[in-house]
């Protein structure tokens, strides 16, 4: 991955924000986190993971549990204490 990869994701992110596309935002931020993880930049990766986590939660995506697990593993999020009250729905990214 390179700076070009982040630039491409950034453009897609702006477009997804523009159309308030929560599932796409979750997937794109997760992709950005992967780039930063590969570069060894944990803080930046956790920033993007947090963004992905929030949009996954809002969209009710299954991936929110895994995203939370990664944040917890890095000391960035509280460990879950019980099931959250909303159901998670598995949905593919749009667009």
């Amino acid at each position: 991955m390179s700076a070009n990869a982040i630039e491409r994701i950034d453009a897609d992110l702006l477009a997804a924000h523009e159309r308030s596309d929560g599932p796409a935002l979750a997937w794109l931020y997760e992709a950005a986190a992967a780039v930063k993880e590969e570069q060894g930049d944990v803080d930046a990766a956790c920033f993007f993971l947090t963004q992905a986590y929030v949009f996954a939660l809002e969209a009710g995506l299954d991936q929110s549990a895994a995203l939370r697990g990664r944040l917890v593993a890095n000391g960035r999020e509280e460990a879950p204490t019980g099931p959250i009250a909303e159901a998670r729905i598995a949905r593919p990214p749009e667009g």
Binding site: F47, L49, T50, Y53, L71, R76
Partner: peptide
């Protein structure tokens, strides 16, 4: 969750 409440990436 409280995103970035402890600083960027710290929730």
């Amino acid at each position: 969750t409280t995103p970035h409440v402890g600083g960027p990436g710290y929730n």
